[in-house]
Write a protein that binds this DNA or RNA. Structure first.
Lengths: 344, 344
DNA sequence: GAATCATCTCAAACCGCTTTGGATACTGCA
DNA sequence: TGCAGTATCCAAAGCGGTTTGAGATGATTC
């Protein structure tokens, strides 16, 4: 059942039917109701492909998911982020297009999306320092919103980010207040912008208290359980091991915990751990009482916000760069306690 | 730059240019090369929207992701599955459309997808027992492949599944061989088909050895860390606690491990754990030496296979139901050992 | 040299909708 | 009564491709 058939059935022109269904004013109320009823009766739905061609809009937004060809890892926050964004799209009649591509072809993918007109805009995930995607997308004129920011980018662009620097600064201060001095950072890969900012917050807090950051206590790797384990195991084997860890994610932290327990130590007593908690739905940080003390910020909510911003930008191409900085909460859980008195 | 412009530039008709680009035989080789060169020079890409309308194909497949409105959880295997499927789509010029919808509107979503012609086919995730989506999709004539199976469905349909029953049967036998008698099952939600099959494998193995399955040792819940923890904690507090656990996923197992360690027990010595390992990229089961003994089957690979099957089914509407059963490997890790001698 | 046949190319219809630019009928007002 | 103004509807031209059916050209056959 298409527009033309419906129109014939009703003895109307396609024009009128189209206008009736789309709420244009130049159609008699009685006629509109008649059309609406008929459309409902035949469960008519306008063909998306035709609408897209006729209006020149894709009614879709793209998420390009680069997969590093070497270490094929999918970002664990991805599912929840997508869920948040997806809700927004559904609510607004937009489709979500996912492109999974080898990371070296990512830029090309954006070009293709633009040339073929498959999407009205895109979300940029996991920005790196001076991320080349930002100038690229600006140049080719494909609307975009970055989830995160890209240090070292001069031009302005749309972004939604968590105040990672502040979060890790507060977390470090919290540990310092508990008497910890040897505080380790199990960071994400430090070509990722958020990881850079987190480290800055961490070192800032330390130096503000007159503590020189110890390079041996800073690691940077994938945010996996195994990487977290390895980093913590190494550091705990030092003659002067850390008494506290700052972990980039709950996943790394599970590895840290494994290492702590493997070393015969007890979490929250011998070793304190603070994580950044993205509130992953399948890895909740405990029920009522948080397992880990954490800086918390929902990645799903971020997904919603990013998507909303993109739809705004698409709807009003004129508006200037949109920016939104989210603050993380610091919540106290069972994984932190006063620094153990040193037995030296 | 569109077809017509390109044709004008070349002094050819749109017909010829279209045919030249699409490899039709009725065009002179010299002409074809001229066209190809010009297309490349102007970096011409046919407009996807126009192709879709003209051909009547969506060149897209849909993944409908239902979000339970009560417990808003995103399936953790989702990211990796999608990554696998996405690779296949990219390679074949198909788009992947993700619809995130409240689970009570899921069926409606399929109807919409069909009516609006947004996709050529869909993937059905997380089938439940006698899943209503299967008859629905069959009825409305939208090609689909199920990732998993749906017990209690009589009609035939396309599916790719892991032999969950066999996997859990083998895992249980392995524990029995180690002398374990009190073996607990920390299962996924048992309206999910895979969970039903896993339980069947588990009880089969037990009864084959003359052990009556103990309902107190079987739990069924979301596959989250917290749920795994709670289940294990409860069971370990029994007067006659289990000496081994079968966990539905590595995530549940992290919770089990937390409970084991909180109880002052040691994994692999006091308590054995076998997991089903989906090989999630961000939660690898150890590096070379597996952390957990596991039945292993890559969900990412499953994503690839499911996607390939769907594209086949779309390309050849006539072919009968496709079925593919994957066997899981049983790999030995550090989390299992002989049953501790009972001190009763 | 005419008829036949490939080979190559094109004009035009079509996919299903939106949207522009009227056309028609009716209303109100002088 | 005449005329501008409004309300309602429609024909037709897109959107940018694909595809059908036919024409033009040159080579081949008799």
């Amino acid at each position: 059942m298409n527009l033309k058939e419906l129109a014939t059935q009703l003895g109307l022109s396609p024009t009128t039917v189209s206008r009736a269904l789309n709420g244009y004013p130049e159609v008699n109320e009685a006629t509109r109701e008649r059309v609406m009823a008929a459309a409902k009766r035949h469960s008519y739905r306008p063909n998306t492909r035709a609408i897209r061609l006729a209006t020149g809009r894709a009614l879709a937004v793209g998420h390009v998911i680069p997969i590093a060809t070497r270490h094929e890892i999918v970002n664990p926050i991805f599912a929840d982020f997508i869920a948040g964004a997806g809700e927004t799209y559904s609510r607004n009649g937009y489709d979500m297009l996912l492109s999974v591509v080898a990371d070296e072809t990512e830029e090309n993918t954006y070009r293709e999306l633009k040339l073929r007109g498959s999407v009205d805009g895109v979300i940029v995930h996991s920005p790196r320092m001076a991320d080349p995607r930002i100038p690229l997308l600006t140049e080719i004129g494909l609307p975009f919103v970055v989830h995160g920011r890209a240090s070292g980018t001069v031009m302005s662009y749309n972004w939604v980010d968590v105040n990672n620097r502040r979060a890790f600064q507060r977390a470090t201060e919290f540990l310092l207040d508990l008497g910890h001095v040897r505080i380790a950072l199990v960071n994400g890969l430090e070509y990722m912008d958020f990881a850079i900012r987190r480290r800055a917050g961490y070192t800032d807090a330390l130096t503000a208290r007159g503590i020189a950051p110890d390079p041996l206590l800073m690691t940077s790797d994938q945010m996996t359980e195994v990487a977290g384990y390895q980093a913590a195991r190494q550091m705990l084997a030092f003659p002067n091991p850390p008494t506290a860890f700052l972990a980039a994610s709950i996943i790394s932290a599970m590895g840290v915990r494994r290492a702590v327990e493997a070393a015969g130590l007890t979490l929250g007593r011998d070793v304190s751990v603070i994580i950044h908690d993205d509130e992953l739905s399948y890895l909740r940080n405990g029920e009522d009482l948080p397992i880990f003390t954490a800086t918390r910020s929902s990645v799903r909510e971020a997904g919603r916000l990013v998507a909303e911003m993109l739809l705004e930008v698409i709807a009003q191409p004129g508006i200037g760069p949109q920016e939104r900085l989210l603050e993380a909460e610091l919540i106290i859980g069972q994984s932190t306690g006063p620094a153990p008195s040193r037995a030296d």
